[in-house]
Nucleic acid binder design. Structure first.
Lengths: 213, 213
DNA sequence: TCTTAATCGTGAACATTGTAACGATGTGAA
DNA sequence: TTCACATCGTTACAATGTTCACGATTAAGA
């Protein structure tokens, strides 16, 4: 509770849990720090440090109990109750994400979608209804949603983000290609697809060495 | 050339360029570090330091010439010639990304897609042909592609990544929900959608304060 | 029981990344 | 021409994040 958990640590914990869940039942019910380290490609020191914040204790001869780790990480990462999420902008990317997240984490539920395009409104995507933008505040309050996925075009992203915050949203996963200017108490996680791809080509080029012919 | 550019710096440079390009023609042809800083939400020191690596020089009374910055960043981020990219796994997410990247950066061209599903093979997506997996190595060599976008299910991601590397790929943008184990000279940029959304809900919850009622 | 061998938990060293500070510089006004 | 002023370029500093190193711990085997 009092321990503050950094972004990086949380990322790794989330990943640890996912890999541990995959492994559960397949291998030994225990795992050593160096084994988990190999799976996620970090050092074993890093793993042990991260596990420290979960309050989980390992055993020097058996390692950590996988089930305990999963549960302890869950206590940090998950809320007590399932978290309701909304998605704004159900174009190709938006509906692909709707599809992607559907049923992936039991505690994260996309409860509503929003779009401005009339032909999308009132349609059902993965069992989730798409509303018009005018219903945004009402639906978000009704669903007690605190987090949103933003997949609208860049030129309207800021304005939509403002509406979300007004409606009570406190965390945004932003796929729009512009930085959002929002109050400091709103957490924004940016997924910048263009920059990511540019990074890949840049470092690929570096490691590929001199261009051939 | 000899200067080594960190991941973080490259991310910011990519973003600077994008915002500067948007601004070009609309505002003054010059910009101060603090103005750019406000746009991307970093400190002006950070901006000036990042610009240092571009070799671009500003003027204490006018600031930086926007065009010069865009060009200088391009010399770092872009290759001399357009970079060919391939996409593997043209499901919903894959085709949404195909759509997203289509024509977005002139220097990054998706030249081929691959999938194992017969009904997708030989179809055209955004003017780009989808090939079967057996053609992967040949097409990648023919197109001189060094970077790939990976949007296949987690259970085949590693195997597909191995094939990509064998075919000459040196950078992968990985959307599959598993870490890839590849040689050190292959750059992997991970977009972990689940972890990202978990982060958002975690920090949203923290800043939302105590749960209401 | 005692030894051995591997791993854990954690303080301290180290590396990386971001911020602040400050002399240098260029322009407009007196 | 000289002064005032805002910003740049760069170095020094601070904060954050990662790795090292080592005593503590556990269980298996002699």
């Amino acid at each position: 509770m009092t321990t503050t958990i950094s972004k990086r640590t949380l990322e790794r914990l989330s990943l640890y849990r996912r890999l541990l869940s995959d492994r559960l039942g397949k291998e030994s019910p225990f795992i050593f720090s160096h084994q988990l380290a190999k799976l996620v490609q970090v050092t074993s020191s890093q793993v042990r440090r991260d596990i420290m914040v979960t309050g989980c204790f390992g055993n020097p001869t058996r390692g950590y109990r996988v089930e305990d780790l999963i549960e302890a990480i869950g206590k940090i990462v998950d809320a007590e109750e399932p978290q309701n999420v909304v998605l704004v902008g159900i174009g190709k990317l938006g509906s692909a994400l709707m599809n992607h997240f559907h049923g992936r984490r039991p505690n994260l539920r996309i409860k509503a979608a929003f779009d401005s395009s009339p032909e999308r409104i009132n349609r059902i995507y993965q069992g989730v209804r798409c509303y018009g933008m005018q219903d945004l505040a009402q639906v978000i309050r009704d669903e007690s949603a605190y987090a949103a996925i933003l997949t609208v075009p860049g030129d309207v992203a800021q304005q939509v983000a403002n509406q979300l915050v007004m409606a009570g949203i406190r965390g945004i996963l932003n796929f729009a290609p512009v930085p959002l200017h929002l109050p400091g108490n709103v957490y924004v996680e940016v997924i910048d697809l263009t920059t990511s791809l540019e990074k890949v080509t840049f470092f690929a080029r570096q490691s590929a060495g001199a261009q051939v012919s």
